[in-house]
Design a binder for these strands. Structure first.
Lengths: 352, 352
DNA sequence: TTCGAAAATGTAATCGATTACACTAAAGTA
DNA sequence: TACTTTAGTGTAATCGATTACATTTTCGAA
């Protein structure tokens, strides 16, 4: 046994009076060992309770079987669920999932990536932080020949695969739904438009209005952050306008909730006077007394697909040639906050 | 440069025509190198952009700087938050956090632990699964000399540190609060009593009743799981009793919510006719139109403390001698579902 | 029986660092 | 001056596996 008390192939080789090379071959099912020796080695390995030292293997092969996941915050429902999906898909094939938080800060993001690269990770999954503009720290991943998969929040970098939902379609579906409810003055609470996801949702909103010949009113479009207060403030602002609104499509469930609270404080009837739709399908949206209509991003599925894309990518012979962009279908979960006429949940279409 | 294109100490030694031993010493601030050589090595290392290979180091030292966290589900708000706390405390000191899910299944738990041990983790944090009775797979961690820290859900094993909240106190506070609201027939929806946490909350409930001379009525105690439906079913059962209840203390926020929905369906007024208190302070409890009173387990803090206990433990000279049991104070967040008289949130006391 | 191919096994380098031990050179001491 | 001490550096083993290449054994064909 070794210093640390672990059984090594050397122990087996000593016991059987054969070389470590043969032991290694037997354990790895090489065809360059006799059946007799192989059986003997396997039997002895079991007896001694031999466990392959993954560190030695990693050093030799350069493969650690660890992958890193970089997200703004792990305890945000969406990210936690994506991570769950990744874990469930990769653990069965022998990977370990290392998680890192950026706190929506580029410097943290860069630091986390650097230390991940230094531990010789086999791949990185990430959702970029809101403050990320410069992408040198990200292309650095590719320079190290480490596969990178974006999920949800991505940057356009050639050669990098991504799994997202169709945010445009999500924004479109949500807005169209409101239009079909008879709404004509539909406000939009957008997120930070530097992030692609919020931009796309906004564009979906615009496109739906155009498609149904509803004039676009810039006063009805307000940029907010994902906080209750900012949804409430937005409503105050909207109610200072001369003409009343009859619907709100918010890119954030939190802002939607804040808006609802403010509407309720003003004794506005939901959904009769104003319909509200959020985005993300945060757990609380379905638990409310008046459940909130929202767009489900199917995060667990997103994580699983991301993991599959990763596995495909590393199994490809011609590396780095193909990038894969999977776009999942958003799912509109219609609930009481916007449901005047009792319609059911709608699913969008997948694009690959 | 090595095969994989990384700069090694060998590259530095070659360039400076000195031995790798000296390079290593210079990089590690050993006092067995001249200042001149040290400066030269550091300068060259920077020029070549040398990065220490953590795998080689890990193989040599047996320390990987990885720790494992084993939880039932990562995307459950409570666990996600604990993990966040652990990450925030350990990343700054150079650790990486590997996460594993058990899906509340002992076999998965055992398998996850085994693969973690095999990757030579420096420590394991875990919350045991509901189905865990046998603990051989857990003591196996100790046999491998790997530090183990329980959080929230623990088993009694000598030598194992733990960080929990005072569930008894939580149950007591919740019940006492209901009593002070004037409630006399207080039902309890308990969780699986095989789990210590639920048992303690239940005992806290019993003790509070005793302390205020309120008779215990076994009919008012119902074991449920953490699902909305089971809270609703429990209420149905309670309303089949001859005498009406005037409060519910649920060990689960989900069951509490289900109970509230059922009460509302029966047009029972909350909190006037029935007060409701949950447990865990799930995000949704505060977002409801009628926010739900709940016991906050301060999960992020719990993660941070667990990380600190781990760091203390590995820094101790005399290993394995002291176990540390930290018991955090629960915090009763009083909200409308139980607040007849507008009281404020109460904090419990910490025990160490 | 003998030779050659194929099968089985062994030797030793390698992955990239650390470190016990050996050695040289410079400085201090008598 | 001669001898001891110490600072600085080098050699080589080690962590535990894989594997290219070398060598030995086995077995069939002539």
């Amino acid at each position: 046994m070794s210093q640390k008390g672990n059984v090594t192939i050397y122990d087996i080789s000593k016991q059987l009076k054969i070389s470590t090379a043969t032991v290694s071959r037997a354990l790895n099912n090489s065809d360059r060992v006799s059946q007799k020796t192989r059986d003997l080695v396997l039997k002895t390995a079991k007896e001694l309770n031999y466990q392959q030292n993954s560190l030695a293997l990693a050093l030799k092969s350069g493969k650690t079987n660890n992958i890193g996941v970089v997200v703004p915050y792990i305890n945000h429902s969406f990210f936690a669920s994506v991570i769950r999906g990744i874990e469930e898909e990769l653990t069965p094939v022998g990977y370990h999932v290392i998680i890192c938080q950026t706190h929506e800060n580029v410097e943290n993001e860069a630091k986390q990536i650097q230390t991940l690269l230094n531990t010789h990770i086999d791949g990185i999954f990430m959702s970029v932080s809101k403050t990320t503009q410069d992408i040198d720290h990200i292309t650095n991943i590719l320079n190290n020949n480490v596969p990178l998969i974006f999920f949800d929040r991505k940057k356009e970098i050639t050669g990098v695969s991504s799994v997202t939902i169709d945010d445009f379609q999500g924004g479109f579906m949500a807005t169209e739904h409101l239009i079909k409810q008879g709404c004509k003055r539909i406000a939009h609470l957008s997120g930070d438009l530097n992030l692609d996801i919020y931009l796309k949702r906004y564009e979906g909103y615009l496109d739906a209005l155009k498609a149904y010949n509803i004039p676009i009113d810039r006063d009805l479009i307000i940029e907010v952050n994902s906080k209750l207060e900012s949804g409430a403030v937005a409503v105050q602002q909207l109610y200072n306008l001369p003409k009343k609104i009859d619907a709100i499509f918010s890119s954030s469930d939190y802002a939607a909730l804040g808006a609802i609270q403010e509407l309720r404080a003003r004794e506005v009837k939901i959904p009769d006077e104003v319909c509200v739709v959020g985005f993300s399908n945060e757990p609380f949206t379905q638990y409310m007394e008046m459940p909130i209509t929202s767009v489900n991003q199917t995060p667990v599925l997103m994580g699983k697909i991301a993991a599959q894309v990763f596995l495909e990518q590393i199994n490809e012979k011609k590396r780095m040639t193909v990038e894969k962009k999977v776009v999942l279908a958003p799912e509109l979960c219609i609930r009481n906050s916007s449901n005047k006429s009792k319609i059911e949940t709608k699913k969008g279409k997948v694009r690959i």
